[in-house]
Every structure is written in structure tokens, then in C-alpha cells.
């Protein structure tokens, strides 16, 4: 995984796990790498990994069992919350950026609709 150096690395680790959960790459009960393995593989400070794992434990995403490792442990509700939170974050960013360019809410919706129909056509023309 490549990190963006201008964002907190521990947050990027947490976000990466969130995305993989939402995409279904990781499921309840799956074992994730130990902190040391993760640090070595990603070549980042073990203290940072520790911070990310601690954060995920506090958020009830993972559970560390002594001597066994760290496992995904998340309720359906929690997963939905995370999914929603990420969506809201993305939309929030989008709106902020668009507002800074002077778009109104209506204009944004207009653009979104247009873009969506354009994409659909593109998919259809690809098939043809």
C-alpha cells in the first residue's frame, strides 16, 4: 500500500482496512497481519501501526486475542455505519470542492445526473 505523506499514516491504515471491509475483501473472523508484519511489509514505524490497530480496536473493528493474533470483529450495524461514514466523507469533500468552484447544490446534482447518463452510454457503447 502506498501512503500519502501529507496525511496521517495511521488514518490511512485504518481507512485501508475500512475499504477492504466494505468491498468484502475482509470478513468477520479473518485474521489480519500482526502489527510487526504490517510494519515490516509496509515499511512504516511500528508505533504508527500500533496506533492504527489501537484505533481499530476502539472502533470495534478488530479484536486482538492474546497469543493468537488480531481478527476482524465487527457487527453488521457497525459495518453499515462505516460504509455510510466513508460515503458521507467522500460526498462532503466533493461538495466542499465544488462549492469552492462556485457550484450551487442544483448545479452539482445536474452535473451528477449528466455524468451518470454519459457513463451508462459509454458502458453500452463499449458492449456494442
Amino acid at each position: 500500500m502506498e501512503f500519502n505523506a501529507s496525511q496521517p499514516i495511521y488514518k490511512q491504515i485504518v481507512d485501508d482496512f475500512k475499504k477492504r471491509l466494505i468491498r468484502g475483501e475482509l470478513k468477520e473472523g479473518d485474521k489480519i497481519p500482526s502489527q510487526r508484519e504490517y510494519a515490516e511489509k509496509a515499511r512504516i514505524n511500528p508505533n504508527t501501526v500500533q496506533r492504527a490497530y489501537r484505533e481499530m480496536e476502539n472502533m470495534n473493528m478488530v479484536e486482538t486475542l492474546r497469543g493468537q493474533g488480531t481478527f476482524i470483529s465487527i457487527s453488521e450495524d457497525k459495518l453499515e455505519d462505516i460504509k455510510m461514514e466513508m460515503a458521507v466523507n467522500l460526498v462532503d469533500n466533493f461538495i466542499k470542492e465544488m462549492e469552492s468552484l462556485g457550484y450551487s447544490a442544483e448545479a452539482m446534482l445536474e452535473i451528477l445526473r449528466e455524468e451518470q447518463s454519459r457513463r451508462k452510454e459509454a458502458v453500452i457503447s463499449d458492449r456494442v
Binding site: 500519502n4 505523506a5 501529507s6 496521517p8 499514516i9 488514518k11 496506533r51
Partner: peptide
Amino acid sequence: AEDLRVERNMSLVE
């Protein structure tokens, strides 16, 4: 380092 990134939204190089 992480706090600085949160506060300033910048990499250490920047």
C-alpha cells in the same frame, strides 16, 4: 509527525 500531518495537512518534506 502524525499530529503535524493532521494539523497542517502537509508531508514532513513540505
